[in-house]
Computed example of a mutant assay.
Amino acid sequence: METISKVKAFGGMQGVYRHASTTCQCDMTFALFLPPQAEQKPVPVLWYLSGLTCTHQNVMDKGEYRRLAAELGVAVLCPDTSPRGDDIPDEPDNWQFGKGAGFYLDATQAPFAKNYRMYSYITQELSELAAEKFPLDMTRQAITGHSMGGHGAITIALKNPGRFKSVSAFAPIAQPSTAGWSKPALEKYLGQDESAWRAYDSTLLIEDGHRIENLLIDQGTADSFLNDGLRPWLLEEACKKAGIALTLNMREGYDHSYYFISTFMDEHLRWHAQRLGVFASTT
C-alpha cells in the first residue's frame, strides 16, 4: 500500500492511499480520515460511498466532515467509485456508466466482469485492508453515501445484515432497476435478465426479505434528478411495508450538490455516532 498524502486536520489525519487491488485487478485509491482518538485506541468507522462521476476526493474536498468526526472520534473511509486505469473498459462519453459509475456491484458481463467488482471490493478487500493497516474498530461500522453511493450504501447494508450499526444516504437512487439513468448501466453490467438486477436494487431487496434496522435519508426538493432518477417515495413505501424504521427528510429548496450534502453532514454524523455507541457531543 502506498501513501499518497497525509495532512493533519482538527487534530486528526486525512490520508489518501493507493494499493494494487486483486478484486478489481487495477490500482485503487481511497481516502481515510482518522480522528485524534485513533492515536490511543481503535475507533468506529463510517463508510462514505460517492456518486456518479466522483472519486474518493469529492467528499474529502467538499463534504465538511472532519471537524465533527474528530470531535466524535469516528473515522471516515471514502473509497473510489469504480476501477481506474488505461486498460479498464469504459464509455468516456457516458457519465452514467464505466469509470466513475461502478454502481457498487459485481459485473457479470464481458468486458466489465474482470474489473467492475466494487461490491466485493468494498465488502471484502478494502474492509480487510483497512482493518489490517489502520486502528479501526470493525465491530462498529456505519455506512452512508450520495446518489449512486446512497444506492450502494443501502444495498450493501441490506445484503450484509448485522454488519453496519446504522445506514444513511443523501439523495439515493431508490430503485435503480427502473430509473432512467441507472437501468442501462445494470443491463450492461449484469445482462438482460432483469431478475439479476434485484440483488442491487434497494426496494427489491427489501421486497425479497432483506432487512436493516434503521435508515436515514435526506433528499432535496429542488434536486433535478428527483422524479426520474431518485424517487425516494418508492423506498419509503418498501420500508413501510417491511417495518423498517425510515426517517426521510425532504429538504425544501436543496439540490443534488455538495452544498446540500455538507449542510446536513453533521446531522448524519451525529445520527451514526449515537448508533455506534459514541455518546459525547451527539445532541
Rank of each mutant, 00 (worst) to 15 (best):
L49P: 02
E187L: 12
Q175C: 14
A222I: 00
Y48G: 01
A101C: 10
G51W: 06
F164S: 11
P35T: 01
G220I: 09
G11L: 12
A130L: 12
S168T: 00
W95Y: 14
G180W: 12
G73M: 11
E267W: 03
T221S: 05
L248Y: 10
T81W: 09
L190D: 07
K188L: 13
S262C: 04
G152Y: 00
G85L: 12
I143V: 04
P161F: 12
P36T: 09
N58K: 11
C239F: 13
E267C: 00
T22W: 01
T203E: 05
A222E: 08
M250C: 11
P161S: 10
G220L: 08
G191S: 04
T247Y: 05
A280F: 09
F260E: 09
S177R: 10
E132A: 15
T22N: 12
L158W: 07
D90I: 10
I261S: 08
T203C: 11
Q192M: 15
P232N: 07
T155W: 07
E267A: 07
K240T: 11
Q14S: 13
S224H: 06
E2N: 15
I154P: 07
K99G: 10
P135N: 12
P176E: 08
N214D: 13
I244K: 05
A70N: 03
A222Q: 07
E213I: 01
I261L: 12
G191M: 12
Q219W: 00
D228P: 05
A131W: 10
M138S: 00
N94M: 07
W197Y: 03
P176H: 08
L46T: 01
P184T: 14
E237F: 12
G277T: 06
E194S: 01
E194R: 02
K183I: 15
K241F: 12
Q25F: 12
T283G: 13
D86C: 10
T53S: 07
V59L: 14
M138R: 05
N94E: 08
Q141A: 02
P135F: 14
Q57W: 13
F164K: 10
G152A: 10
M60W: 07
S262M: 02
A169H: 04
E132Y: 15
D193R: 04
L32V: 08
T3S: 14
A113P: 09
H272P: 01
Y104K: 06
T22Q: 15
K6N: 01
G63M: 05
E125K: 09
R117P: 02
H272I: 04
F279A: 03
R140L: 03
V7S: 05
D90A: 09
S182M: 15
L186Y: 14
L68D: 05
L205N: 08
P135V: 14
F264E: 13
K133S: 15
R163Y: 04
F112N: 03
R211D: 02
W197N: 03
A174S: 15
S82L: 05
D87P: 01
